[in-house]
Computed example of a mutant assay.
Amino acid sequence: MVDNPADDTADGDVRLDLSDHVATITIDRPSAHNALTVDMIRTLAAAIDSVRGDDEVRAVIVTGAGDKAFSAGGDLGELIPRLTAGELEVLIPDASKRFFSDVYKPIIAAVNGFCLAGGLEILLGTDLRIAADHATFGLPEVHWGVIPGGGSHVRLPQQLAWPQAMHLLLAAESIDAAEALRIGLINEVVAPDEVMPRARELAQKIAAHAPVAVQTAKEIAVKALGNEPRFNLETALNERVLATRDAREGPRAFIEKRQPRYEGK
Rank of each mutant, 00 (worst) to 15 (best):
G125V: 02
F231W: 09
L225T: 07
Y104F: 11
P30N: 04
L160P: 00
G125I: 06
F254R: 06
E239M: 08
D193Y: 02
V142F: 03
T9D: 13
I183W: 04
E141A: 09
T235V: 14
P157V: 07
L116W: 01
H33Q: 12
A132P: 00
K218A: 09
G250L: 03
Y104M: 00
E179V: 03
S174A: 15
R42I: 07
M40D: 13
A72L: 00
V111K: 01
F70Q: 03
P5S: 01
L91T: 10
A221K: 11
A59V: 07
G145C: 04
V241S: 10
V38C: 00
E249T: 02
H209Q: 14
A32T: 13
I122A: 00
I48A: 13
A135W: 08
S152F: 04
S174P: 13
A210K: 10
A59Q: 07
E201L: 08
A221V: 10
P148L: 05
A243W: 03
L233F: 11
S71E: 12
F114E: 13
P5R: 01
F70H: 04
A135P: 06
A203E: 09
I107N: 04
I206G: 03
V103Y: 00
G145D: 09
R58L: 11
M166F: 10
G264R: 02
N227Q: 13
A23I: 10
I147L: 09
Q164S: 14
S71G: 03
P229K: 01
A180W: 02
R248D: 14
H153E: 15
L181Y: 09
K68S: 12
E121Q: 15
E87V: 02
N112T: 15
R182F: 00
N4R: 04
V60P: 07
Q159G: 06
K218Y: 14
N227C: 12
N227F: 10
R129V: 11
A23M: 07
N232T: 15
A35I: 01
Q259S: 09
L44D: 03
H134C: 06
L116V: 10
K257L: 14
G226P: 02
E56L: 08
N4W: 02
K68P: 00
G113S: 07
R155Q: 11
G264M: 06
G184V: 05
E194S: 11
T244E: 05
G150D: 10
L185G: 00
I41C: 13
I27K: 08
L156K: 05
A65Y: 08
K105E: 05
A178Q: 14
L83T: 09
V57W: 02
L156D: 14
D75W: 14
F99Q: 12
G74Y: 12
A45N: 12
P148M: 04
N238M: 15
D75T: 06
K97Q: 15
R129A: 05
A65S: 12
I41P: 02
P211Y: 01
K218W: 14
P81E: 00
